[in-house]
Design a protein around this nucleic acid. Structure first.
Lengths: 344, 344
DNA sequence: ATGCTATTTGGCAACGCTCCCGATACGAGC
DNA sequence: GCTCGTATCGGGAGCGTTGCCAAATAGCAT
C-alpha cells in the first residue's frame, strides 16, 4: 500500500517536491532549453518516480494543439459491418506507424458518406487534422469538403490527384498504373481488354485507371471498345456481376483489367463458373495487391501501390498544413506485381 | 465573406446571442432536463447556425471523461510494417463500429510488446479505458498489466479467458473450438492429427486450442502423440517452417490443426512443396477465418470467431469499468466453417 | 564596486467547459 | 396573504496545463 492508487499526480506535486515552480516543471518536461540541466534532471527523476503523465486534455486545451490526427474511412457500398476494404486496412497500418513515429495519436472512425461527420471534427479540437480515405462516389462528399475548407479544418484526401479535386490530395499514379496494366496485357498478346469499374467522373481514380489503359491500347494501334467497359464499384459481389454482364454482352474479350482486386476476385469466380480458364482464355489484372491476391487460383497479377509511402505522405501533408505550410498534392508511383493470372 | 472563417465560436458567444448564461448553454446542449424547452430550442438553433461544436479538450478536462477508448495492438513477431494480422483488423472494424454506436471516439496504436506503452495512457486522460489486442507472448506484457491495475486504469484484454489471467478479459471459447476442430477431423476418419502452434502457457489461447483438440482425440479413444506437436507463432513463415519440421520428424500424420489461418496457409505451402495433397493426404483446419482463407486452394476449413460480438463485448466491458461496474470475463462461442481443405 | 547582458525562474492569466451551489420566479397550498 | 416547493437559470470556482512577461540570479567587463 505504498502509494494511493488513483491519486493522479499533477505538475504541482512535482513542483513542490522539486522545490521549483509549476511552470518550470512544464518547461522541463517538454524539453525547453531555458531550464538548467540540473533542475531538469531532478524534475525528470521525480516525474518518473511518481509515474507522472501530462494531462492530455489540459495540455491540448491550453496549447490548442491535440497532437492527434483523425482517420476517417468512407465506404460506399458495403452495409456489411466487419468487411472492410483490405487495401484501406493496409493503409491504416502504414498511417498509424507513421503517426507513432511522429508522436501523434490517431483517432479512427468509419463514416457513411452522407453523414454529418464534418461537424464532429471542425472546431471540436479532437484532432489537429483529418485524413480522409474513401473509394466512394466523390461527388457525395465533395460539398462537405468545401465546408471543411470554409471552417479552416486541415485535411488531406487519399484519391485521385487531378485539377478538379479540392483540398490537399495524395494518391497513386492511377493513369500510369492503368497504362502499366494495359501494356503488360498487350505485351502478352491480348488485344481485347475489358475494364471492370466505374469509369466516370464520380469515381475519378477508376476513371484514370481506365484512361491509362485506353492510352496503352491506343498507343498499340488498337482502339478501345465501349462494349468492354462495365461499371462496378469495389466489392467482390460487384465484380462477379460485372463479369457476368460482360459475358452476356457477347463481345469477345481475352483480358480483364479490374479496377480493384475485390472486383477481380469476383470476376474470376464468374469466369470460372462460365467455364473460362484464367489465364488461358482470359488474362486478369487487378489493382491494390490485397493480401488475398496471392492466394486466389491462379494468383492474381495486380498493381501494388506504395502503401508505406502513402501513409507517410498523408501524415506529412496534414502536418504541413497544421504548421501553416501548404499541403501540396502528391502523386505516388505504383508498380505491377506479376503473378499467374495474366499468364506470367 | 459572411462570417470570419476560423473564429471558432464558444459557448459564450451562443449564450450572448441567446440572452442566457453560458452554463445554461452547456446544459441545454448536453440535454439536461433542467432547462426549459423554449430556451433549449433557441440555443440549439443558434448553435447550429454558428456551426458550434463543444470543445473536446475543455469538456474532457473539466468532466474528467474523454469519451474515448484506446485500442492497442500488440504484435510479437512481425517487424514487417504494413502486414497486420488480418484477424485483428476485422476486430478493429467491429470495435470501431460499436464505439461509434456508443458515441465514443477510438484511439488506435500499435505497440511493441516491450514498450512503455502503459505510461502513455495511465493518468494522461487520453482515453477512459484501453482495449488490448495481442497474440504475443502473454508473459511479456503481464507485468505491465499489473501496473495498469495499480494505477487504476480501466482496460480489457482480448485473449484466453481462464483463471490465471489478470484484469477483465474477453475471448473465444478456445478449448471448445479446438475440440470442435478435432471432432470434425476425427469424424472424417483422421486419426493422427498434428497441431501447429505454441502449446505452452506463454500462449494460453493456443494452449487451450490444443487442449480442446487433445480432449477430442482422447474422447475418441486415441492418444495424442507429442511428436505431432510443433511450435509456431502466428505467421505464414512460421507455419511453413513448422510444417517442414513436422515432415522431417517422419511421424505419420493425416491431418493438421493449425492454431491460426496464417500458420495453416504456410503449412499448406510446405505440404504442397513436399508433394502431399490437401485434403487427400492431409486434412487441414485453421483458426480465425481470415478473408484469405476462402481463397486458398483448396479453400481452408477454419474456426470462425464471432467478431461482431467480440467487439461489442470488449467495448461494453471497458465501459462497465468506467462506470464503476465490474468488467466481467466473457467467453464467446466459435463455430466451424467447413471448406475443402478438411475433405468437406 | 557598478552596470549590463545572458540565463533561469516565478507569477499571473488564460484555454472553454462543467459542477456545485444559490437566486429568482411562479404557482400551489393552507 | 404568507409560506413553501418546484422549475429554471446565473455566479463563481475550478479542471491542469501552457504562454507571456517580469523578476531574480549569475557572469563578466568596465
Amino acid at each position: 500500500m505504498g502509494r494511493r492508487p488513483s491519486n493522479k499526480p499533477t505538475s504541482f506535486d512535482i513542483a513542490y517536491l522539486a522545490g521549483v515552480s509549476q511552470p518550470t516543471v512544464s518547461r522541463a518536461l517538454r524539453g525547453s532549453k531555458s531550464v538548467s540541466l540540473a533542475t531538469r534532471q531532478k524534475i525528470e527523476a521525480i516525474a518518473r518516480q511518481l509515474n507522472y503523465t501530462v494531462d492530455k486534455n489540459a495540455s491540448s486545451l491550453r496549447s490548442q494543439r491535440s497532437n492527434t490526427l483523425a482517420l476517417l474511412f468512407f465506404e460506399d457500398p458495403t452495409p456489411d459491418e466487419s468487411n472492410i476494404n483490405p487495401f484501406f486496412l493496409a493503409m491504416l497500418g502504414s498511417i498509424t506507424r507513421h503517426c507513432a513515429h511522429r508522436g501523434l495519436d490517431l483517432l479512427i472512425s468509419f463514416q457513411k458518406l452522407d453523414d454529418d461527420w464534418h461537424k464532429r471534427y471542425q472546431d471540436s479540437h479532437r484532432a489537429d487534422g483529418l485524413i480522409l480515405l474513401g473509394y466512394g462516389d466523390y461527388t457525395a462528399y465533395e460539398p462537405r469538403l468545401r465546408q471543411l475548407i470554409r471552417s479552416g479544418t486541415h485535411f488531406v484526401r487519399w484519391g485521385s490527384v487531378d485539377d478538379g479535386t479540392i483540398g490537399a490530395t495524395v494518391g497513386s499514379d492511377n493513369f500510369g498504373a492503368g497504362r502499366l496494366a494495359g501494356e503488360h496485357l498487350l505485351a502478352r498478346g491480348r488485344k481485347r481488354i475489358a475494364f471492370l469499374g466505374q469509369a466516370d467522373s464520380h469515381y475519378p481514380e477508376f476513371e484514370q485507371r481506365y484512361a491509362g489503359l485506353a492510352k496503352a491500347v491506343v498507343t498499340a494501334g488498337l482502339s478501345p471498345d465501349p462494349a468492354l467497359l462495365v461499371d462496378a464499384v469495389s466489392s467482390e459481389e460487384n465484380g462477379y456481376h460485372a463479369a457476368r454482364e460482360l459475358l452476356s454482352r457477347e463481345a469477345p474479350f481475352d483480358a480483364i483489367f479490374a479496377a480493384s482486386d475485390l472486383i477481380a476476385v469476383g470476376a474470376m469466380r464468374a469466369l470460372s463458373e462460365a467455364g473460362l480458364s484464367v489465364p488461358e482464355d482470359v488474362a486478369v489484372v487487378g489493382f491494390d495487391d490485397i493480401p488475398a491476391a496471392a492466394f486466389t487460383s491462379p494468383p492474381l497479377t495486380t498493381i501494388m501501390q506504395d502503401i508505406r509511402l502513402a501513409g507517410e505522405a498523408l501524415v506529412e501533408s496534414v502536418l504541413a498544413q497544421v504548421e501553416g505550410r501548404p499541403g501540396n498534392p502528391r502523386v505516388l508511383p505504383a508498380r505491377l506485381v506479376v503473378r499467374a493470372s495474366s499468364g506470367g
